[in-house]
Design a protein around this nucleic acid. Structure first.
Length: 789
RNA sequence: GAGCUCGUGGUCUAUUGGUAUGAUUUGACCCUCACACGGUCAAGGUAGCAGGUUCGAUUCCUGCCGGGCUCACCA
């Protein structure tokens, strides 16, 4: 135990944990279960520094609960299905899913995942996660597929799902429908083009649009009913340039007369609003766009062109023929697909939906029941639920995901749902169990080839995880804790809550802890394109797992925090300090008898009193998930009270005891305070605390690992405020003496004659004070005085 | 545009209705038999700005400014 080398030691300690299954979930335990809905990270090759922070924060809580006599259910999963994985594999393997046989692509995805997953999970192990890694799931494995398909079937049977052909949000890049929560705003510079249309009353009407290329799909013009400029046009028709088709002019109160020209041309489909107007005014839409975002034959000479190309061309043509009144540059916000950043389009497609718009009030009520940490994060949830506009589109026209367990009758289009006992199924490979269509007796079926939205599966993580231990399912679900980053409240948290409500009418967890983001040192969002990302592996290598965790425990839940390497240095120093102070303490415990001495010396009682106050405070903080208080309070106690003062004070009692009791009292206190400090530190710094525990305390404490020991228990009877105060006064005096020694440039061990205020004549602490101050003599007078020999 | 959130010494941060905690940084001294990744001491802030409530606000309220996030934005 000479020097602590975290790089080697942490690896050894991890091996010890794994070999002895320290974090294994005990199915037979009688203890109360504490279940955690561990976020399954998306396999993307490597861990992000933000992950290292948020996973540490939840792990600190898991470790705390484990030491508080809970049987902690802490599984680990990876979120592997869906677009992110497809995109990763496309990038890594330089392929395109659309350009290869579907099954080959799926196989490639599965094989690649298998290849990269172990290294990926290792990152989580390296930061000291105390999951039971044998309680593992992947959101694409058969276990998850089964549960996800079951969910689909149950909701279908309850009438919560429907399939419908309708205009919906579509990503031309990914060539799939997407859901509302997948939209991301982006500000774009564009042109507002004012186009003149001839009308049936022989006057032109000017519309303003940023999407002139959609003109071939113009089905109407809308003006506000009270807009005086356009009163005369209402009910008349206008002629579309080039296409010479006539469209009706409608009065529509949704139109903002102040924007553009005040007249809107209605194309199908420029945005979701257009789809609503189609319904409202019973207009027949013109479908103009292909799935890849190019215009179809309806666009005449513009067909085959992508939006941007067509836009450029049509503006030129309109200008040539003098249809354009003016063009204004405009900055506006467009909806893009958060995965790829492409502008979304509205396409008429057939999709599966979960009907839940009618449940918004229920979702708000459920949100109220959840304990949010920090509480203000509930606002984001409420805001989102109130803004919900569409049912949940759960079908995706992609390849790698959970198949929708459905076939269709070729003849009558009847929906054939898979049997639950056959799950998981892949309709593309498996046939329905029935021989004939129940409706028309046809024997031919068409498999559904769409897959489920990845969030349709991810929203079932509590059920997926809990059913890893089926016999305890009802004790595991609903769960106790959901850790969730704030940016995916609208995705993961909301969808999980929604599904739990739809299926079981229960809240999926009691508490949600919402973590913030790690920003770059300048407070900006990290992104690969900006080149300002920080790789946690490098930090782990440069410092240590404990140091990284120390850093991660230094900021509050929900706060976005700039990454500061300095805090890692502080963590490293703390690890070192713990090591050295422990080394010194253990050295001085070599002849400790492990018996409680007949009486405790004043400073020993003083320390134990402070220790108990610390235990009380840290326990209360941790029960509120405030790991940051655990960190700072323990650090403060350990470094200041324990190392800087207490250890200095007892040195002489241990080196040259005047009585047997004064040494035994010190050793008893030393053992207790060190062990408890280590325990309090252990959720944050699991490696160094384990190392010291294994090397010394285990022999006496018998428990296999410090992480399985009991959390220090607060004992009110050991608190003595008066004694603490008296002791603190002496600590003050020690500081004063140090100040004098420093100002006189004397060594701390310089011998002195000390004069103290006479009120201290009866103080119990004189022996220790005399020793620590190195006073040859103590006199009493009016005030403090330090005289050097 | 709406909602939420943040704004404390150079940097990061705690706390609080009664002029503020700690860390880091800087400087000086000390290699004191656990630790120089250490110890001691010192310097450094009046808590974004402007009002209001109050005996008194950094902490409560209002407005403004600035940062962040979410949502809506437009045709």
């Amino acid at each position: 135990m000479e020097q602590y080398n975290p790089k080697e030691k942490e690896k050894e300690i991890r091996a010890f944990w794994e070999k002895n299954k320290i974090y294994k979930f005990d199915k037979t335990s009688k203890k109360q279960i504490y279940s955690i809905d561990t976020p399954p990270p998306t396999v993307s090759g490597k861990m992000h520094v933000g992950h290292s922070a948020s996973y540490t924060q939840q792990d600190v809580i898991a470790r705390y609960k484990r030491m508080n006599n809970f049987n902690v259910f802490y599984p680990f999963g990876t979120d592997d299905n869906g677009l992110p994985t497809e995109r990763l594999i496309e990038k890594e393997k330089k392929v395109r899913g659309v350009n290869m046989p579907r099954q080959d692509f799926i196989n490639l995805c599965l094989a690649t995942l298998k290849e990269i997953r172990p290294d990926f999970i290792q990152d989580w192990k390296n930061i000291g996660m105390s999951c039971d890694f044998e309680l593992f799931y992947s959101t694409i494995d058969s276990h998850s597929r089964k549960i996800s398909q079951e969910s689909f079937i149950d909701l279908y049977n309850e009438g919560r799902e429907y399939r419908k052909r309708m205009p919906f949000m579509w990503c031309p890049e990914c060539q799939t429908a997407i859901a509302q929560y997948e939209l991301e705003d982006k500000e774009r510079e564009s042109n507002l083009v004012y186009i003149k249309f001839q009308t049936s009353i022989k006057k032109t009407i000017t519309i303003a649009t940023t999407r002139p290329e959609l003109m071939p799909a113009c089905v109407a013009i809308h003006v506000h009913p009270d807009d005086k400029k356009y009163k005369a046009f209402i009910g008349k028709t206008a002629t579309i340039p080039f296409f010479n088709r006539e469209v009706k002019i409608y009065a529509n109160k949704d139109v903002d007369p102040a924007f553009g020209s005040g007249a809107v041309y209605h194309c199908t489909f420029g945005d979701m609003n257009d789809a609503e107007w189609i319904r409202e005014f019973k207009i027949t839409p013109i479908e103009i766009m292909n799935k890849d975002g190019s215009l179809n034959e309806q666009a005449g000479k513009y067909s085959g062109l992508k939006s941007k190309e067509a836009r450029k061309l049509i503006i030129e043509d309109l200008q040539k023929d003098n249809f354009i009144e003016k063009i204004e540059p405009i900055k506006h916000v467009v909806n893009t697909h958060e995965r790829c950043g492409y502008d979304i389009e509205i396409l008429m497609t057939e999709q599966w939906f979960i009907k839940y718009l009618d449940l918004r009030d229920e979702f708000l009520k459920q949100g109220n029941k959840l304990n949010w940490h920090p509480s203000h994060m509930k606002n984001r949830y409420d805001n989102w639920v109130k803004g919900l506009k569409y049912d949940w589109c759960i079908s995706r026209q992609r390849f790698f995901g959970v198949p929708i367990p459905v076939w269709y009758c070729k003849k009558c289009n009847e929906i054939i749902i898979a049997n639950k006992k056959d799950l998981p199924v892949d309709p593309l490979k498996d046939s329905p169990k029935i021989k004939k269509c129940p409706k028309c007796n046809s024997q031919e079926f068409i498999p559904e080839k769409d897959i489920l939205d990845t969030w349709a599966t991810s929203s079932l993580t509590p059920q997926i995880a809990a059913s890893l231990v089926p016999e305890l399912y009802h004790k595991l679900y609903p769960m106790d804790l959901r850790p969730n980053a704030h940016d995916i409240i609208t995705f993961w948290l909301f969808n999980t809550l929604a599904k739990s409500y739809l299926h079981n009418k229960v809240l999926p967890w009691k508490d949600a802890i919402i973590s913030g983001w790690i920003l770059d040192p300048n407070g900006r969002k990290m992104s690969k394109s900006k080149g300002n990302t920080i790789d946690p592996k490098i930090m782990l290598d440069k410092y240590s797992g404990d140091a990284l965790r120390f850093w991660a425990s230094s900021f509050k839940l929900g706060d976005d925090t700039p990454f500061k390497e300095k805090e890692l240095v502080a963590g490293q120093k703390t690890v070192n300090k713990i090591f050295n102070a422990s080394k010194f303490s253990i050295m001085n415990l070599s002849d400790y008898t492990h018996k409680k001495p007949p009486s405790l010396e004043p400073f020993d009682s003083w320390l134990i009193s402070k220790l108990n106050s610390l235990i009380k405070e840290t326990t209360e903080s941790m029960d509120e998930f405030e790991y940051i208080r655990l960190k700072s309070d323990t650090e403060n106690f350990f470094w200041n009270t324990f190392c800087d003062f207490y250890l200095e004070i007892i040195k002489s009692r241990i080196y040259e005891p005047k009585t047997k009791n004064e040494k035994e009292s010190a050793q008893y206190t030393l053992y207790l305070a060190l062990l408890d400090s280590l325990k309090l530190f252990s959720p944050i710094m699991p490696y160094i605390t384990e190392e010291i525990y294994q090397n010394y305390f285990k022999e006496f404490e018998k428990t296999e690992s410090i992480h399985l020991t009991n959390w220090p228990k607060y004992d009110k009877s050991l608190i003595n405020e008066k004694l603490e105060q008296e002791g603190d006064e002496i600590i003050q005096i020690i500081s004063e003496i140090r100040k004098v020694k420093t100002s006189k440039q004397k060594s701390m061990k310089a011998e002195i004659i000390l004069t103290l205020p006479s009120k201290l004549e009866k103080s119990k602490f004189m022996n220790d004070l005399k020793a620590v101050a190195n006073a040859k003599e103590i006199k009493f007078g009016n005030s403090l005085n330090v005289e050097f020999l």
